[in-house]
Simulated assay, not measured.
Amino acid sequence: MLKKGLPILLLLVLFLNACGNSQSNTSGGSKKGSGSAESARPKMVTYQSENGPVKVPAHPKRVVVLDLSAGDVIKLGIHLVGVDTYAENNPNYKPYLKGVEEVSADDLEKIASLKPDLIIGYSTTKNIDRLKKIAPTVTYTYGKLDYLKQFEAIGKLVNKEKEADAWVASYHQRAQALEKKIKAKIGANTTVSVIGTSAKQFYVFGDNWGRGTEILYQEMHLKMPELVKEKALKPGYYQISQEVLPEYFGDYVILSMQPGSDTSFEKTKIYKEIPAVTNHHVFKVNDASFSFNDPISLDYQLNYFQKIFLGKQ
């Protein structure tokens, strides 16, 4: 009787032992999986924003931009998942925004669905407190930093400080080289105006209002007409009427126009007789692609100025 029951007892011991090993393996697998989940969490660093320290991902991979920093982020090779309407409508950005959603600060559910790991906006952007609940949010006060310092600040934010510094150095070098060539061709005292028009309204711009003004005046030190300097330099821009256009036109004019703008002014006698017009020194540009001053836009503007002033591609 004892000998006959021994194999059954042995089988029972082996079965219980196997179950124990299986449970042990399952438990070990869970610990390993937990470790993988832990390692998958993004590394966070502290960014010193203008409003204090903010914990942000060391290497952001899904960024929503609600200000004019989209070109900065693009240039630094950071993946965007959402941008505002201004960026979406900029022709220079089109190649980089395939699959990127257009959003506003009111689209909280849509932004949340994009699962951003970083949101960038202005200090005046709506719903900041609610955006912070979706992802780490960093804001900047518009105009507090100049256009190059702003790019460097974005570079620091997304852990691309060296890349930002390298581009700025290259930009200075290229702009200064172009300055010498342009002045050698048109003269150091030749004046250049940057004028915008939309819906029969006209604006003349100073040296920091996009549309190439940073390059023309700050980098290449081309001269603006005295009246432009008097009226537009300090405020950044100055609205003028069609009747006084001749007073604000320099020897060369960059005319920034929105698509579909009224061009009837070009048929008036007062416009046709402006020296810059008769000399074919008025160059029309698309305001949507020319109004920004980020690296993508500045590279485009540099190439454009080289073309119109020197006749080179």
Rank of each mutant, 00 (worst) to 15 (best):
K3L: 11
L10W: 05
L11N: 04
C19F: 12
S22D: 10
Q23D: 10
G29D: 08
S30W: 05
K31Y: 13
K31D: 11
K32E: 12
G33N: 11
G35D: 15
S36W: 05
K43Q: 11
M44Q: 07
S49W: 04
G52A: 03
R62I: 01
V64T: 08
V64Q: 02
V65C: 09
G71Q: 06
G71T: 15
I74W: 01
K75E: 14
V83S: 05
D84Q: 08
A87Y: 05
N92A: 10
Y93A: 06
K94L: 04
P95E: 04
L97N: 13
K98F: 01
V103K: 08
S104R: 14
E109N: 15
D117A: 05
I120R: 04
T125L: 00
I128A: 10
R130C: 02
T141R: 03
L145P: 00
L145W: 04
Y147M: 08
V158M: 03
N159P: 07
E161F: 08
K162A: 15
A166E: 15
W167K: 07
K180A: 14
I182V: 15
K183H: 09
A184V: 10
T197C: 07
A199Q: 12
K200E: 15
V204E: 01
N208C: 02
G210I: 13
R211L: 14
T213N: 08
T213H: 07
I215C: 04
I215E: 10
Y217I: 03
M220G: 02
L222E: 09
E226W: 00
E226T: 13
K229R: 08
E230D: 09
K231N: 06
K231M: 13
A232S: 07
A232V: 06
G236E: 09
G236W: 08
Y237K: 00
Y238D: 04
E243Q: 15
E243L: 10
P246E: 05
I254H: 04
S256E: 05
P259F: 14
D262K: 09
D262C: 11
S264T: 14
E266P: 04
K272H: 07
E273M: 06
P275D: 13
T278N: 07
N279E: 13
D287M: 08
A288E: 12
S291T: 01
S291L: 04
N293D: 12
D294S: 02
D294K: 13
I296N: 01
Y304T: 01
I308W: 03
F309W: 02
